[in-house]
Design a protein around this nucleic acid. Structure first.
Lengths: 200, 200, 200, 200
DNA sequence: CATGAATGAGCCTTCATTCAT
DNA sequence: AATGAATGAAGGCTCATTCAT
């Protein structure tokens, strides 16, 4: 990490949610994932945070804005995390592994709730909200695309990159519904299995 | 109308929903998919069907029951269709192809709406509803499991069957979010690509 | 059944409600008493009769009209029955006993349901309905009043007749809430007890 | 405001309903009595209170709960008031008079509406609500019973106490339907008349 | 910042009634 | 007469949001 990075980091830290917002966002991610955005009430959310429902609106203008904030935060982090990982490795296989690893980490790690909300509740987002996040989304998948394009050039994979990357992405995202982090197979094993889908 | 016709008619009446129920179920599948179950109102649904909201409750006791009916119908059909397909072919590769084909057909064919609802809105279903459909669900995935178990025995695949089948299933289900049936690649191409994930 | 019986039956059938109306009125009295008029639905009533709800409206224009018919029938009978009884006896004590007996018979006998509805659901009746029955009501209580006026003249009772008659009437009507016809005390005993309230 | 005042205030706040609840309960008693519980709408009630219908549900979970609260409050007060009165007098005649006086006061005094609702709408109460109030009811009538048992022992009354007490209670309760507090006879006269039913 | 009563639009559902068959 | 699908007006209730304290 360079000095510039440090500066950047502390700038971002200034942006990062204060304690109240932080607790709301975390509780919201957990709640929205568990009950769905539409079925979650602001009262439930306030209860989970330990405040009254009216107080939520001192921090966010609306329930929609909370959903947006949850999604925005995780999509930014997910993209940034992927960018970092891709920069750290070389070679197509390692890079594909990074794609998988990053997605699995967000899907099953500490950000699992927000990630699930991002995936599941996209339709619950207002059109404006969707538009505001679309650019990030696009950038994230562009990183996948670049990796697969190069892998194809190198002859590592033989299926059309666009299709292959979507299939792999779906396979990994879907692990949210069946993979048990507490079970026998570790995340590493899951990563290997996912990689084997696209590499022989 | 002969006696035979009558018998046939009453048999069919037992199986297939009457015209009104039929139209409601179709419209519900489309609406619930497009807007989500919780955000869909019974008035919207009634509008789509061309009746008044109160009339819905002549055919279904509640909005929940409509969701259940949509899901039950498609899960039964999906399982029956898969059973039929698997009986019609021999050999593990053909059987895996049948798994993929069946899922793709429901995901992108005429039953696409109901299938999407089944996948997406599972959490919106009442606990009793979930329990009632769980057996069907289990049976459906058991078929997948048998196919993969045998493929493993034959040395056709090398990854743990439970994991591999889930990854493949996720990859195929997820096509709902990106695959465009009107686009360049046909369903056949998609099927081939999916198959290539598990077979070399 | 003899020929005479037949004739009698058909004569009565001409006056009394036809079989369908009859069954509706009886079921309505029972239902309205058990659940209250407002909480009773026409579907419940139709179920009890063994027809579909729409069919009720071939016999009565509205649910209100059914209530009215139940009340009208029983108030007419109650008054007629009282008139008959009063004509059959002489002497103030016997006449007061007739007032009590008549009210008890309707309150606990075969007409108990309709009688309870008449008492309980008066407010549920439309203003027009109330007006239409008020004359009968007035006549019924006039009979009470005449009896008590004479008893007072004879020095049999010493409290103001208007008040005494109302108190007695209330005491007897209220037995509907606590007296158990299947219990130890017979209706005769109840009658004696009620009589003892006004006579020493 | 001293510390003592504060303590007192908070103690009272625990017992007596707050201003909002108070106004709702009073309006509900009046409305439910006038139109019947089932025919009263929450919008009417809100109108009478001067708030919007949704606001009712800040103070009560449901319309049923409002009915229950009205009834519970009055049944508790009625029983407590009776207990106090009975303790204040001696001799069976005075005690019977207390029974009558208490019932008349609630039937025609400031609590007349709630008392009428308690008597009239018992069936509209949920089974759970009825169960919750039954114990109070039982206690209230036990007080009546004790008084009449003793009066019987003293040879003051000669009819079976259980029956006599019910007849008297019915006569007094029923005054709600005919007695006019604005009319000629005062409540005192009514009390005397009622007493004369059981005492010679 | 937090509170919590109040808002008011909107939701699912009920139900008496109608009417073509 | 009976049917039962359809009507449409309420009805009870929920809930995101506001605002005076």
């Amino acid at each position: 990490m360079t000095v510039q990075d440090k500066t950047l980091a502390s700038q971002e830290r200034r942006k990062a949610p204060g304690p109240a917002k932080r607790r709301i966002l975390d509780a919201a991610a957990r709640l929205f994932r568990a009950r769905g955005f539409a079925r979650s009430t602001v009262r439930e959310l306030a209860d989970a945070v330990g405040i009254l429902s009216g107080s939520l609106f001192h921090h966010f203008k609306s329930k929609d804005e909370i959903l947006f904030a949850v999604m925005e935060e995780v999509i930014i982090d997910m993209d940034a995390s992927l960018a970092e990982r891709l920069q750290a490795v070389e070679g197509s296989e390692a890079r594909i592994r990074a794609l998988i690893h990053n997605q699995l980490e967000f899907t099953h790690g500490p950000r699992a709730d927000a990630t699930a909300v991002l995936v599941h509740e996209w339709n619950a987002l207002s059109p404006e909200g969707q538009a505001a996040l679309l650019e990030r989304r696009r950038r994230y998948f562009e990183r996948w695309h670049e990796v697969f394009l190069q892998a194809r050039e190198e002859g590592l994979v033989h299926v059309e990159p666009t299709v292959l990357q979507q299939l792999l992405h779906g396979a990994v995202v879907w692990t949210a519904y069946w993979y048990d982090p507490e079970g026998q197979m570790g995340l590493q094993g899951l990563e290997d299995a996912a990689l084997s889908l696209v590499l022989k």
